[in-house]
Computed example of a mutant assay.
Amino acid sequence: MTKETLATDPVANLSALVRCASVTPADGGALGALEAMLVPLGFSVERVTFSDDDTADVENLYARLGSAEPHLMFAGHTDVVPPGDVAAWSKPPFEAAIVDDMMIGRGTVDMKGGIAAFVAACASYIAENGPPKGSISFLITGDEEGPSINGTEKLLKHADAKGEVWQGAIVGEPTNPEAMGDMIKIGRRGSLSGIITVHGVQGHVAYPHLADNPIRAIVAFCNALLDTPFDHGTDTFPATNLEITSIDVGNPSVNVIPSKATAAFNVRFNDRWDAESLQMDIHNRLDQAAERLRSGTERPPVDFDITWKERPSPSFLTRDETLIAAMQQAVESVTGRTPKLSTTGGTSDARFIKDYCPVVEFGLVGQTMHMVDERVALSDLRTLTQIYRQFLDRWFA
């Protein structure tokens, strides 16, 4: 097998992936395109579909090269968010058009570019060194941009049940805020969402004594959640932050007191908290606010409840110095920059992987992800490939 037959060109790899319209949960041929790149490199490939009630079936891919340790996992997703108004794009979102050293297309940054670069890095490594003295696996889902039910979490359990063990993992999500070499993610904040519902009594605004306006309580509850900080951050995490994301009374009339009011919120929390302790703190804040509303009045107790939405995501921090140092040194070697070790941003599939092995995240610049004309500089794509290749050299040294 010659170097020319291997998938060493990240631009060609990415073009093949972007041309697959894999809008979550549809595969669109993306996993087949990836399999076609990996099989000639010597990877054994398994594609498995998972199902669950009330969610779409999702196909996923697990590929492995080698049988020895150390075993490195590269994790990511081929599914993308919808392109939105296609007419607003300067080029068709699934054409992979190249304009002025930029490839335009949905998924170029988030995160088919990371997959394309890692495939190219593996191909380059194999062409020069042969198979690694260890193992490399790809754990790729089609469910990251969806509900994340039939994707990475189940694929990890499936692989673990078959005896797969990993010593480290890279998630190829876009991590750099402005330029390649800015940031490595070594952990993530947790996420908790909920909806508060205050039940009142509907009535005429001219006769408030015959009604109970729930807006008074929902405003007090929002203030109780926002006014006092949950904490001031830690050495490795920013401060826990709660945002009210919606307030609604469903009332089209200006002279009717509504019967209920709701407020939705999301909290991104650091490692001072887990979901249970944070839920307790939020309940306590609301109970105290409800008591203050009643204090010195004849009002009845506030009738309210909280619905916790979806599954909370825990915070985590990777402390594996070997994995972190290998990525940090690779970034510095290629870019000349010292990347910040960060726990900022949203959640990712790393929250599932951390239960199986140490994990870091490093990928492209994320400024255009999910936008119209999502795009990647070809120079950044090649830089990322060089960084991944440097990492492989260090990891298997």
Rank of each mutant, 00 (worst) to 15 (best):
K91D: 04
I98Q: 05
C222F: 03
A325L: 08
I257Q: 00
K133P: 13
V376P: 11
V81A: 13
G84K: 00
V39T: 08
D143E: 06
E46V: 05
G172I: 01
D231P: 05
G363A: 07
V80D: 00
T24A: 02
G28A: 02
S124N: 11
N284S: 14
E178I: 10
T5A: 13
A56N: 01
G250R: 10
V256S: 06
L364C: 07
A21G: 08
R292F: 02
S148F: 05
I196E: 04
F94V: 08
A120K: 11
K154L: 14
R19W: 09
L31E: 06
F230V: 08
G187I: 01
V254F: 07
A159R: 10
T55H: 15
T262F: 03
A326V: 08
D248Q: 09
A159M: 10
H158D: 10
V376T: 14
I215L: 15
E298P: 12
W89G: 02
K185W: 15
K112Y: 10
L381I: 00
A33D: 12
L364S: 10
R375F: 00
T141M: 02
T234V: 01
E361G: 02
T8R: 14
T175E: 15
D27G: 11
D53A: 09
A261T: 13
T228E: 14
M1G: 15
E35H: 09
G29V: 10
D54I: 01
I184V: 10
E173F: 08
G76Y: 02
M37R: 06
A161C: 00
N176A: 04
E164Y: 09
F118T: 09
S315P: 06
G151R: 01
M280A: 12
G130I: 14
V249T: 11
P82E: 00
I195G: 09
D320P: 10
G105A: 15
D52C: 05
I170L: 15
I387G: 04
V331R: 03
Q367A: 13
A325C: 06
I247R: 02
R268M: 03
L293E: 13
L210H: 13
S342G: 13
A224V: 08
G142C: 11
T344Q: 02
T5L: 15
A263W: 00
S67E: 12
D349L: 07
S193Q: 10
V205E: 00
A127Y: 07
E144W: 05
D380L: 03
Q202C: 06
R337W: 11
V18Y: 03
T5Y: 14
V360E: 03
D101P: 07
F304N: 03
A169T: 05
T385L: 07
N223W: 02
K260H: 14
V376W: 00
A56S: 08
D52I: 00
M1A: 08
G142L: 06
F43R: 01
V58A: 09
A116K: 09
R189I: 09
I257E: 02
A127E: 12
G84E: 05
G346D: 12
L392S: 11
H283Y: 07
L317N: 03
Q329A: 12
L226A: 12
S148V: 07
M371A: 11
S90F: 04
A159F: 10
D393L: 12
E145W: 05
I324W: 03
T335I: 04
